[in-house]
Write a protein that binds this DNA or RNA. Structure first.
Lengths: 375, 375
DNA sequence: GACGGCTGGGAAAAGGGTTTCCCAGCGCCT
DNA sequence: AGGCGCTGGGAAACCCTTTTCCCAGCCGTC
């Protein structure tokens, strides 16, 4: 250390000892062959750099012949404008950060891919940051992203539980996807689990089921709690009651699904439908039901949640389940972010509808059901 | 269009009509509040920008007091150096592209996270690009990344099958992870499936199994073919033969696992071990064995591949399986890339060792076995 | 013929940070 | 007193692209 406290702010390209290495000494994989600049193009075309810029961007008034000469030169030199120079001047980087707070899981992945897709279509590049649930790491990424002058930020978590808002030292548009911010002024996008639960209850009632049990994950997970609450409400609205008189909270596992199914059978031997809070639980339930001699769907209908293909389709029988449209959610998050970047003000939690995917476990002719080629 | 062919090269921030919008008209979410520059810091500290730069970076010779004044000013203004300006000057962006060629799947995800982790530790930011198997999209991303002057590129696919090398119009270090390049001069990192197969065969032989069948995926998948080949070789080396006299190629599905297990039982009723090319196949086999009245592991040992937790641990009994250490593979890919960026020449395919995870399905006391809280 | 307007294009600044070169001032030695 | 060397810091160039401003030349018109 040459001076005290000289390590603030943290700098890119600096060694442990705080000396750094001269930034001009930057060996490249293949040496030499500096990329062509617009001055090179201009020189080859016999014009000034300014004119070349106009030609390449269709600005200003140029003789068609001149414009063509410049374009030819650019093609010849394989000119590719330096986005950093453009960004420096324009004040926009055309990049956004995608922070996943709790590692990338089964749920956050589709969100992430949907967002990446929509942003790519909007000519934005995406910085991926996986904080693995570490607040320190999160702050590190936030600083890095701000140094890179990202235009906006998408925050996603592995579950739907609310999270405290990101601490941002500078004003940048942020959209929360999947796990909403606890600050209602923030823009958050979540799957409409209440609607999802109602889809399932309506479907089961419509197909003649009356004694419906609900097996789900831990009560302290908002996903489990919300689905359970609205399952109960939807049944009450229809004048029905939950089989067993209560929700079976437990874990998000097949083992719990097997166990809970047996408990539900014991509590109400005439139960005719199990609505499970996840496909894993439903699959466990399917195994337990089969081994207990109950046929699905003729004796008991079975519904899962998540439309996790490998579970839902490998289950015997394949599961009717709720698809949260997470890719679409990610895509929407990206669109909201781009609006915010353009200056459209927004705020609040937006709930995106779920979709019921009907397969054999509820014994209804599946419309557009499972294609044998998918998976 | 103002001129013919004026849309080359494609530009960021440009409208359909080729007119573009003035880049100065860039509304920001929260208006005003321009980020502090080093000149602001210098002014507040009463020094020149050059001196401020030296103070912040620990370069040059400065009086400790001056340095401290600059650092104070930077803190006060919440100064954050503009990475684009730094990159412009240094010629390095400290970013890398992470191209996943065939969408992000179960296998590519850990690779991607491992790479992101290692790169983040190296102060590099990661551009995520999902080409979804589309060559056009791939070229689009390559162009975008080159405009952003990435320092390097990691290419990963969803499977281990070789892929044709990326078409790069400019020389940039590239590392292929999981799916190797068909060009042997490229740097590729793949899991050592041959070694993985041998781990399994050795384990089964060591625990007294002699009649070992191999059930796996499609023969045209290199993962299936390579594991099958080395399973056969390893058995031959030990003086044993494959139960049934052949490899059971099929699909990567539980349904095939169930079916293949029955076939293997019929072909060789005394079979005492099933080595499956994936955990999904193994899980199907586990179900089929149980339903056929064979006990696992006492009658038949069962081994999977992939160490896909939700499959391996939910299987009854939990599966002994091969872990390809994909996160480690991603991390290694990132390290190789950083070496290449620093100028270390390299080339060829590097195979990273797999790891045998022992659970109950082979009936051996598991060392550091399945924790009930994981998954 | 003088002037106005248009066309095509150049010069220069701006954006933010780093580095090189240079210089003023000071202490020390002879 | 003069010369030397060191210290601390400033001026300016540079990275690359875009944009603004300006100008030369030309045509048409009165």
């Amino acid at each position: 250390m040459t001076g005290s406290g000289a390590d603030w702010p943290p700098r890119v390209g600096r060694t442990e000892k705080g000396k750094g290495f001269p930034m001009t000494v930057t060996p490249r994989g293949e040496a030499g062959a500096r990329a062509a600049t617009i001055s090179d193009v201009a020189a080859l075309a016999g014009v000034s750099p300014g004119t070349a810029s106009k030609a390449l961007n269709g600005r200003g008034r140029l003789r068609p012949e001149t414009r063509e000469r410049v374009l030819d030169a650019a093609r010849k030199l394989d000119f590719r404008p330096n986005a950093m120079a453009q960004g420096l001047l324009s004040g926009r980087s055309f990049t956004v950060g995608l922070i996943t707070t709790d590692s990338v899981g089964r749920f956050s992945l589709p969100v992430l891919l949907g967002a990446e897709d929509a942003l790519g279509a909007g000519r934005m590049s995406v910085f991926l940051c996986d904080t693995r649930g570490d607040r320190i790491r999160e702050q590190h990424y936030v600083r890095t992203l701000l140094e890179r002058r990202i235009d906006g930020l998408i925050v996603t978590g592995r579950r739907t539980d609310p999270r405290p808002p990101l601490v941002l030292p500078a004003p940048v548009p942020v959209v929360y996807a999947l796990g909403p911010s606890t600050d209602p002024a923030d823009v958050s996008l979540v799957p409409d689990d209440a609607g999802g639960a109602r889809l399932v209850v309506d479907h089961l009632l419509a197909t003649g089921r009356r004694r419906i049990a609900h097996l789900t994950g831990p009560a302290h997970h908002s996903a489990a709690a919300e689905r359970a609450e609205h399952t109960t409400l939807a049944l009450r609205d229809a004048g029905a009651e939950l089989s067993g008189g209560r929700v079976y909270f437990g874990e998000w596992s097949e083992a719990w699904g097997r166990q809970a199914a047996l408990i539900a059978l014991r509590a109400d031997p005439d139960v005719d439908a199990l609505f499970c809070g996840s496909d894993q639980i439903a699959r466990g339930a399917a195994d337990a039901l089969r081994e207990a001699g109950r046929r699905v769907p003729s004796d008991v209908a079975l519904v899962g949640y998540d439309n996790w293909k490998v579970m839902a389709e490998a289950s015997r029988p394949p599961l009717t389940t709720v698809d949260m449209n997470l890719t679409e959610l990610g895509r929407t998050a990206a669109l909201r972010l781009m609006s915010a970047i353009e200056g459209q003000p927004a705020g609040g939690v937006e709930r995106l509808p779920c979709r019921l995917v009907i397969r054999e476990s509820t014994g209804v002719a599946a419309e557009g059901g499972p294609s044998p080629l998918r998976g």
